[in-house]
Simulated assay, not measured.
Amino acid sequence: MGEQHSTAKRERNPMRALTRVLAVLAEMDEPSVGMRELARRLDTPPSSLQRTLDSAFETSLVALAAPGQWELGWEFHRLAALAQRKQPFRAATDILEELRDATGETALLTVYDPYRKTRMFVAAAESHHAVRFVPNLFSWMPAHAGASALAILAFRPEDERRALYAEGLAALTTTTATSAEDLESRLAKIRHDGYAFSYDEVNLAAAAAAAPVLLSDVTSSVAVIAPRQRLDEVPHVELAGLTVRAARRLAQRLGDPSAALAASAKT
């Protein structure tokens, strides 16, 4: 029995090591990061962090930029390049640009991770206005606030939504919904309408309209986001219609792998 326990423990170690390496990679958001800074960000003893960096160094996921300074390694960049070529969100580029041109505002593609219960912007076509919303791409954000998030959450399974609520609904601004009952009522309306609007929920003075990309598993949405004053000047029915049509086009494209590949090849 002791031998079985020891074997199970060894089998779990690679996953724990991978988790630690991924945590390190997630913090390397600058050209290079020092050991002390990494240890502070991860709240990890330097000795433990050094073992993780050594493991990542052996596979070229990280490299030494200078003594004590670490940077992303070539193996990381190779894997990232492969992932970019295969990512279906590349198929959204022209659709977002056309939505941007039709509305004059920044168009976004948002994706949701049901395991993390968070979402992020993964593609954008920025508005040409001097004053515009500039998205922070590839940063995880809460899934309970903002039109682009709620357009997805409304179509997620009920038990998944309940689990999200149980973790707490933080107030990102004074208008963020923090009550599960209020949020459920709002999500029911989004399911009925087929689109979502939000005002000041994540960023003050910002407004957005979003529609879900309706595939068998809804994990993404298309949105338009802008300063609230400017978005209020556009009739909601018109804005919703443009956003829904863009989301439907993307759903059709992603539902046809050959069409998605062709669109991706153009970018």
Rank of each mutant, 00 (worst) to 15 (best):
M1Y: 15
Q4S: 13
T7N: 08
E11M: 13
R12T: 11
P14Y: 13
P14D: 11
M15V: 12
T19R: 10
L22H: 00
A23L: 01
A23N: 04
V24P: 14
L25Y: 04
D29Y: 02
R36W: 01
E37M: 05
A39S: 10
S47K: 10
L49C: 00
L49F: 01
S55Y: 09
V62W: 01
A63V: 10
A63K: 11
A65P: 01
Q69K: 10
E71Y: 02
R78A: 04
L79A: 13
A80H: 11
A81C: 04
Q84Y: 06
R85G: 07
F89V: 11
L99F: 10
L99K: 02
A102E: 10
V111L: 13
V111G: 07
D113M: 09
Y115H: 15
Y115T: 13
K117G: 11
K117A: 13
V122D: 07
V131E: 09
R132C: 06
F133V: 08
F138N: 14
H144L: 10
A145C: 12
G146Q: 08
A149T: 06
A151Y: 00
A151K: 04
A154C: 03
A154M: 03
F155Q: 05
L164G: 05
L169W: 15
A170R: 15
T174W: 05
T175F: 02
E181S: 13
S185W: 02
L187E: 01
A188D: 07
K189N: 13
K189S: 14
R191A: 04
Y195W: 15
Y199T: 08
A208S: 14
A211T: 07
P227K: 00
P227R: 04
D232R: 09
P235G: 02
V244Q: 15
R249M: 12
R249E: 15
L250R: 08
L254Y: 11
S258H: 00
L261V: 05
A263G: 05
T267E: 15
